[in-house]
């Protein structure tokens, strides 16, 4: 019995010292293996005096059970600390940059065009497009500007070498295209986005090529009050709710009355800054009631139908939105510019 006690102490001490899987396995073989010390003890039982056998056998079996349990416990602890050590070794500097997927970005003009399209789509305006290379007739004459009309000076025109064929100076010829395609006895609600061209020196503020979005609504009960409503709605959706708007009388040969719409400067909130030229207002679009002559040219009877039209420049809107100081960036295709947006 004395031996048993000694063996137990010795085994438990050895177990406590076993720190890894190899040491544990060695311990197991030494004590609990087929040739281990505990089994050796059990195997030696027949050699004992008969009277001692039952008690010794019981004690030896108890020792075997105790050691087995201790082993399991110890093995689990070792496994856990091993896992913990492994995990600890996997720790990282979480501030290291991640692995970024390479995704392209939308051109800032196209971002704004999508915004504009979306806002007007919700108001029932659909996109309708027409050509960049246009006839003088569509670009000017049918828009109430006969040859030689002084209002033509408002648009510096690129002429092509084909007489009577020009680069459209605005998207307004789309009004005639749309009326002739969709009319003459149906209401119309379209926007006409597209590229326009002007014979203008290219500077930080003016480009020879730029987008314009024209809008056209024609119906039997369309009024200037409706035009104001649409502009207010658009401005509040594009520039954020609560915008103040100002409507000024203006002149376009293809609208009468004509209006210029200003929104309170989004940068200085109307206090005056360099962007709004200290007026507190930013011009956002030109608009007006479609001129009776233009309605007639589109196939509509101006006595029965009325309509409004408006036009705006997405590049200008984008410049204000992102604080872009120079319009020449838009079509320069410098990725260092393009990758800053969206």
């Amino acid at each position: 019995m004395h031996d048993l006690q000694r063996l137990r102490d010795q085994a438990l001490a050895g177990l406590a010292a076993a720190g890894d899987e190899t040491a544990l396995e060695a311990w197991r073989i030494q004590y609990l293996g087929r040739k281990g010390q505990v089994l050796e003890l059990l195997r030696a039982i027949p050699d004992l005096p008969a009277a001692e056998r039952p008690a010794f056998g019981q004690a030896a079996n108890a020792l075997k059970g105790e050691l087995s349990a201790a082993f399991d416990e110890r093995a689990q602890a070792v496994a856990q600390s091993k896992l913990a050590a492994e995990l600890a070794a996997e720790g990282v500097d979480v501030t290291l940059p991640g692995r970024r997927p390479q995704l392209g970005r939308l051109h800032p003009s196209n971002q704004t065009l999508r915004e504009i399209n979306g806002i007007f789509a919700a108001m029932g305006f659909q996109v309708y497009t027409s050509p960049d290379v246009e006839t003088d007739e569509l670009n000017f004459e049918l828009l109430n500007m006969p040859p030689g009309h002084p209002a033509r000076d408002m648009w510096d025109t690129f002429y092509t070498t084909t007489p009577g064929v020009i680069m459209r100076t605005h998207t307004s010829p789309g009004q005639i295209h749309a009326m002739r395609a969709l009319g003459p006895d149906k209401p119309i609600r379209v926007i006409l986005p597209g590229m326009c061209y002007r014979y203008e020196q290219v500077t930080a503020r003016s480009e020879m090529m730029f987008h314009q979005v024209e809008g056209l609504a024609i119906g039997r009960r369309i009024t200037m009050a409706d035009l104001k409503g649409v502009i207010v709605e658009f401005a509040n959706q594009l520039y954020g709710a609560g915008r103040r708007l100002r409507f000024r009388c203006s002149h376009f040969p293809f609208t009468e009355p004509s209006v210029e719409a200003d929104v309170d400067c989004i940068l200085c909130r109307g206090k005056g800054c360099a962007i709004c030229k200290y007026t507190g207002w930013l011009e956002i679009m030109g608009a007006g009631m479609v001129h009776p002559t233009v309605l007639r040219n589109g196939g509509y009877d101006p006595a029965e139908w009325s309509g409004f039209a408006f036009g705006m420049g997405p590049e200008r809107i984008t410049m204000l939105k992102h604080g872009i100081s120079d319009i020449r960036y838009f079509f320069g295709n410098d990725v260092r510019f393009l990758e800053q947006f969206g």
């Binding site: 108001m123 029932g124 969709l182 149906k186 209401p187 119309i188 609600r189 609504a217 119906g219 039997r220 009960r221 369309i222 009024t223 200037m224 009050a225 409706d226 104001k228 409503g229 649409v230 207010v232 709605e233 100002r246 409507f247 000024r248 009388c249 009355p257 209006v259």
Partner: peptide
């Protein structure tokens, strides 16, 4: 309109028929 002031014109939402 311009003598009355464009600001005096009401602001309405189109109630004309929605085109197809």
């Amino acid at each position: 309109a311009r003598v009355i002031g464009y600001d005096q014109i009401p602001t309405t939402l189109m109630d004309d028929a929605l085109p197809p």
